[in-house]
């Protein structure tokens, strides 16, 4: 990619309030049509769904494979469940693409859905009948996060402390700006290089803390540099 071109375009177009960032899983309306075409002969989904030839699919996201007590699964599916297979966007996508490649011996006689866009639409429809994150925050995501694709050169960009100040409001929900430490470490006046290294370690999941992994995972290299510049210069 050509970062300079992108930055120029960005400057011209700008953001407005109302910018949408995350990508939805897919189009659930189209997913419903695909479900009726390819799945509904064996599976039920929605109000009052029950097991038929295949298990009912309400709550399939975050469900352990082969775990409905009321359904008799193939040995292959039960074994995968026992080994820890849980249905998420990633595992369902692989299963829908080619069921037998993920679960040997599955009784689901379906050759697979080739197009990524179709699978995404189908999963978006399935997702509407699983736990809602508003009620169960740990439930599977309902959209795909913005994934930064940054040229390594951007790593060399100097952070903008003003932008860092804006971003810092998320940090200061937990880390106190005045540098006091009451159970959560201080991050004020860190050397910039240390700050950047630590954040990238969280981003790459080398450091183990889940809150920080989550926070760092969605900061771009530039945002990390900006935060580093801001916190380093705090009084």
């Amino acid at each position: 990619m050509k970062p300079r071109l992108l930055l120029t375009l960005a400057t011209v177009l700008g953001f407005s309030a109302g910018t949408v960032q995350a990508d939805t899983i897919g189009d659930p309306v189209r997913g419903e049509q695909l479900f009726k075409r390819d799945c509904a002969a064996c599976h039920q989904l929605g109000e009052g769904a029950v097991n038929r030839v295949g298990p009912q699919l309400n709550g399939v996201f975050d469900r352990r494979a082969g775990s409905l007590a009321s359904f008799s699964y193939s040995k292959g599916m039960s074994r995968m469940g026992a080994d820890g297979l849980t249905w998420t966007l990633e595992t369902l996508d692989a299963y829908l693409a080619n069921p037998r490649s993920l679960v040997s011996g599955t009784r689901m006689s379906y050759r697979g859905m080739k197009e990524q866009q179709d699978r995404s639409a189908l999963m978006a429809y399935l997702r509407t009948w699983s736990d809602k994150p508003q009620n169960i925050p740990e439930a599977s995501p309902t959209a795909r996060p913005t994934v930064p694709e940054l040229d390594p050169k951007i790593l060399a960009i100097q952070g903008d402390p003003a932008y860092g100040e804006y971003l810092s409001s998320e940090c200061t929900t937990c880390h106190q700006r005045d540098g006091s430490d009451q159970g959560i470490p201080a991050i004020t006046r860190w050397p910039q290089d240390d700050f950047v290294a630590a954040m990238h370690a969280y981003k790459q999941k080398l450091r183990p803390h889940p809150v920080m992994q989550m926070m760092a995972s969605r900061l771009t290299d530039e945002e990390i540099a900006s935060l580093a510049a801001y916190f380093a210069a705090l009084d």
């Binding site: 992108l6 930055l7 407005s16 990508d23 913005t146 930064p148 940054l150 903008d160 771009t220």
Partner: peptide, 14 residues
């Protein structure tokens, strides 16, 4: 997506 990711810091609407 890549546009957004690259442009976050550069852009800001007035």
């Amino acid at each position: 997506r890549s546009f957004l990711a690259s442009s976050v810091a550069a852009a800001g609407v007035l």
